[in-house]
Write a protein that binds this DNA or RNA. Structure first.
Length: 281
DNA sequence: TGCCAGGAATTGC
DNA sequence: GCAATTCATGGC
C-alpha cells in the first residue's frame, strides 16, 4: 500500500538523508529524494520526499500494512515537531547552529541489532574506514533483499569464529566484542526489544554489562537506536572537535567543560549532539 | 611519516 | 580509584 501525507511544521528531510547517505549500508537516492528502508517483515518500504522544508510532503510506498507506515513515521520522528526544540536552544551557545540546521530531525536506525554492531565497529576508527568495515560486515554476512542490504542475524554472527572477522580487518578484540554480544542476543540473554520499555539509565546498565559496550556505545544506542532525546556522548571525538570549533578553542574541550553546558541543553542533549555532528560533516 | 580516529578493556601505581 | 597503556589499521 502507498500513502501520501504532509507535515504541519518545518522538517528538513534533504539534510537528514544526506547524513544517512554517509553510511554506505543505507540505500539513499539523493536525486529522487528517496530512501529504502529494510523492514523486519522482509520487505523494503520506500520513503520519498515530494515537498519542501517549509511544506514537507511524503510518499510511503510498498508497505505491507498500516503498521509499517506507522513504523516509518516513528523512525523519522514525523510525529515530533521540532520548533519547540529550536526555541529551547535560541539564546544558548548553540543558537546559531539550531537556526542553520532548523528542522533537522533525529532519525532512528532501522535495526536495533545493527545499531549496536555498527557502534562497536565504529569505536576508535576514522569514519571512512569504519564505514568500510561495516559495509564488509553487512555484505559478508548479511543479506540483500530487493537490492537493499540488511544486517545479518545475531545467530549468524554468534556462530562465527574470530578469524572470520579478522579477515575483514577487524581487530581481535573488536571481533570478540561483536561475536560475544551477538551470542548474548541469539541466546536470548539480551533482549534488545525489551530495552524499548526501559528508561535511559536502565538501558545503559544493561548494555554496559557486556564486554565491548561502554558509555559511548550505550549512549549511541539510546540516541540512534531508540531515538531518545537527551543523550550526549562525551567520549565522542566528533563532538569534541565540533565544540572546539563552535567555541573557537585551540584545543578540544574537556569532558567537564562540555558537561557544564548540560543544564542549558537538557532535555534535548541528543539534538545538541546531532546538530554538532552535522556542523562538521 | 607520525599522529589521529564519532572507545573500551586492561594494566600499573 | 584513577591515569597510562594497549588494541589494530586506514586516513591524511
Amino acid at each position: 500500500m502507498d500513502v501520501q501525507f504532509t507535515l504541519p511544521y518545518v522538517y528538513d528531510f534533504d539534510r537528514a538523508i544526506v547524513r544517512l547517505a554517509g553510511d554506505p549500508v543505507n540505500s539513499v537516492d539523493l536525486q529522487s529524494r528517496t530512501i529504502r528502508i529494510p523492514m523486519e517483515e522482509g520487505n523494503c518500504v520506500t520513503l520519498q520526499s515530494i515537498g519542501t522544508k517549509q511544506l514537507p510532503s511524503f510518499i510511503v510506498g510498498n508497505a505491507i500494512d498500516a503498521i509499517q507506515i506507522e513504523k516509518v513515521k516513528s523512525i523519522f520522528h514525523f510525529d515530533k515537531p521540532l520548533d519547540a526544540i529550536g526555541l529551547h536552544f535560541a539564546g544558548t551557545d548553540l543558537g546559531s547552529l539550531f537556526m542553520e540546521y532548523e528542522g533537522t530531525p533525529l532519525i532512528k536506525s532501522f535495526s536495533l541489532y545493527g545499531t549496536l554492531m555498527k557502534s562497536i565497529i565504529h569505536q576508535q576508527l576514522n569514519l571512512s574506514f569504519s564505514h568500510t568495515l561495516t559495509k564488509r560486515f553487512v555484505e559478508s554476512f548479511g543479506e540483500m533483499v530487493d537490492d537493499v542490504w540488511r544486517y545479518p542475524s545475531p545467530e549468524r554472527i554468534a556462530a562465527l569464529d574470530v578469524l572470520a572477522l579478522r579477515d575483514l580487518q577487524f581487530s581481535t578484540r573488536k571481533a570478540e566484542y561483536v561475536i560475544g554480544l551477538s551470542q548474548a542476543i541469539a541466546e536470548g540473554t539480551l533482549d534488545l526489544e525489551q530495552l524499548i520499555g526501559m528508561d535511559d539509565d536502565e538501558v545503559t546498565s544493561k548494555l554496559v554489562a557486556y564486554r565491548g559496550v561502554g558509555p559511548w556505545t550505550a549512549q549511541g544506542f539510546l540516541m540512534s537506536g531508540l531515538g531518545r532525546p537527551n543523550l550526549f556522548p562525551l567520549a565522542d571525538i566528533g563532538l569534541q572537535n565540533a565544540l572546539k570549533k563552535v567555541w573557537n578553542m585551540d584545543r578540544k574541550p574537556s569532558q567537564d567543560e562540555m558537561r557544564t553546558r548540560f543544564p542549558e541543553w537538557s532535555p534535548y542533549l541528543s539534538y545538541a549532539a546531532l546538530y554538532l555532528w552535522h556542523s562538521i560533516e
